[in-house]
Design a protein around this nucleic acid. Structure first.
Length: 179
DNA sequence: CGCCTTTGACCTGCGC
DNA sequence: GCGCAGGTCAAAGGCG
């Protein structure tokens, strides 16, 4: 992690792009050609948790074991996980210490396009203007039958060059075979 | 024809 | 209880 910004309640770290160990599922184009920068943050973590994230992050080519466990905060479940877990686990969450948690993770991506192809098929189901932002927020659901993973996509209020993609849930299926 | 996006309406949670 | 904001639904239309 490079930084933590308490004002925006998010931490961020860079240098994800370019790692040979990372495959974010961009099928036709190396991710490094799409994005100049790539930041992962999680608004659902407090500062104490956030600084630990780089240790937890276990990036693998298909995110299969990238789970980061819930820290059992009294205010509710909070955990982070890379999108697209393909380990076939049932349910919409990871099990840790006999506890199922709903996973959310937000990617702040420097990109000119808002639709970031992560290898899964998404269906748009809503669009909403949000307060304090000139940019609409778009809502997507995974098109796969029985998969309830959702994602929100919006432009960064402070820097429209960035796209904030928020994933919620875990895919209970493999990525489409053509990826 | 099937799947998608669009978009206004509706639902829900939360603060006052 | 009311109003606001975020999230979701579903009808309509477009596209391959």
């Amino acid at each position: 992690m490079d930084s933590y910004d308490p004002m925006s309640r998010s931490y961020s770290y860079t240098s994800v792009v370019g790692s040979p160990d990372i495959d974010y599922g961009v099928p036709n184009q190396p991710i490094s050609e799409l994005f100049d920068n790539f930041i992962v943050f999680d608004d659902w973590m407090n500062e104490d948790q956030a600084h630990k994230v780089p240790e937890y992050a276990d990036y693998t080519p298909d995110y299969a074991s990238a789970g980061i466990e819930d820290q059992s905060q009294s205010s509710g479940s909070s955990s982070i996980h890379l999108p697209g877990n393909c380990n076939g686990a049932a349910g919409n969450g990871i099990v840790h210490n006999q506890k199922v948690t709903k996973k959310k993770v937000a990617f702040k991506t420097k990109s000119q396009v808002e639709i970031l192809d992560d290898g899964f098929k998404w269906r748009k189901y809503g669009k909403k203007m949000v307060k304090n932002s000139p940019n609409p927020r778009n809502y997507y659901r995974c098109s796969a039958e029985g998969c309830s993973v959702k994602k929100r996509v919006e432009r960064d209020v402070e820097d429209a060059r960035y796209v904030i993609t928020t994933y919620e849930g875990v895919h209970n299926h493999q990525r489409p075979s053509n990826f």
